[in-house]
């Protein structure tokens, strides 16, 4: 992305009170200097910016970590867990496994910014390490764990059985951590628990394709989500002329349409079947749901519900505050600050 394109994006944000900007790639730290320029330029614009960055960590040196800390850039590190899982798919440019380098970086990152996120991808050939990997990342210091299945991979029934058994182990872990009053977010379970607790609100908050978030390609094209970048049929504008509202609405309408395969399904209101981004990644069609998504949802929902019932029945304070108190994050931050000042 050129400097001009990036600055145009920042200038376009001036019509909003606050905007979140995520640097993603490929690998955004290949353009480290540009990121610094963008951050500096954003300070001249009348808008509150929240910056995030998703990185594989290979270029995340001490200086960059300090820069991120000073500028409140939340870093999400792509790390797949234990060595056996991570090194299966995470290789560097020379094809060498990256676990050792990334773990070293993770330690430094967490020391400087304890709220950094672990972005973990689970593949059929790493699913057997799922629980061990989550436990490992938590022990490493990541308390914000975003874990997703690689929906593009070739999953089969046997893999799904392993997935189920891993979710069951993870459920025990989730309950134990909550009972020990650990603060953490484990996206697969927390999102599903939320899908019950939030009720109708959850449906509204699901995939807001192109409405709340847009992705900008290096050339300045605007797309509804990261998965759509450089698919010309989903282009909804560019940084010069802005978003074409009619294209944006058309796409949103198209995505809102219930897939025929899912009408009347009892869990459709709590499921990700209507996430255009997942669908495009998994099937190449925003309205076509992948059987992997379907099976995953059917496996995970009852497990997540059991976790919620278990902790609710015990009237667990951490569970109740985390799930029901809208001020939870803020109070939690106050607690962390008060502990740090002791």
């Amino acid at each position: 992305m050129t400097r001009e394109t990036a600055f145009k994006v920042i200038e376009g944000c001036s019509e909003y009170d606050s905007v979140g900007i995520i640097f993603f790639g490929g690998e955004p730290l290949l353009c480290k200097d540009l990121i610094k320029e963008i951050i500096d330029y954003s300070k001249k614009i009348d808008c509150v910016f929240n910056f995030k960055m998703t990185t594989n960590g290979l270029l995340l040196d001490d200086e960059t970590i300090s820069f991120c800390k000073e500028n409140h850039i939340i870093v999400s590190l792509s790390i797949d867990g234990i060595k056996s899982a991570h090194d299966k798919h995470r290789k560097d440019f020379d094809g060498q496994p990256t676990y050792d380098k990334v773990v070293k970086v993770a330690g430094k990152l967490l020391l400087a910014m304890p709220y950094s996120t672990a972005m973990m991808t689970v593949n059929p050939d790493t699913v057997e390490y799922y629980c061990d990997s989550v436990k490992y990342l938590f022990e490493l210091g990541f308390h914000y764990l975003i874990c997703t299945l690689n929906y593009q991979a070739d999953w089969n029934e046997k893999d799904m059985k392993v997935l189920k058994s891993e979710y069951e182990k993870l459920a025990k872990l989730y309950i134990n951590w909550t009972e020990e009053e650990e603060k953490f977010y484990f996206s697969p379970f927390d999102a599903k628990i939320s899908s019950h607790i939030m009720g109708e609100e959850y449906c509204k908050e699901r995939c807001q394709l192109g409405k709340k978030q847009i992705s900008v390609s290096p050339g300045g094209g605007l797309y509804p989500c990261i998965q759509f970048v450089n698919r010309s049929e989903y282009l909804i504008g560019n940084v010069e002329t802005g978003i074409e509202k009619s294209l944006q609405s058309q796409l949103y309408e198209k995505n809102s349409k219930e897939a025929e395969t899912c009408t009347d399904c009892a869990i459709r209101k709590r499921c990700n079947h209507n996430c255009g981004c997942i669908n495009i990644a998994a099937t190449g069609n925003i309205n076509k749901v992948s059987p992997v998504v379907c099976h995953n949802e059917q496996i995970i929902l009852p497990i997540a519900d059991s976790i919620a019932e278990n902790l609710y029945k015990k009237r667990n304070g951490m569970f109740i505050q985390k799930q029901y108190n809208e001020m939870y994050s803020f109070i939690s931050l106050i607690e962390d600050n008060s502990e740090a000042n002791k």
């Binding site: 019950h196 009720g199 059987p291 059917q298 029945k313």
Partner: peptide
């Protein structure tokens, strides 16, 4: 694998946020 509709789910014995 195929897409399979869920016919019925059990009630979750946890209150909603509104409740």
């Amino acid at each position: 694998m195929k897409i399979e509709k869920v016919v019925k789910t059990r009630k979750v014995r946890v209150p909603t946020k509104t409740e």
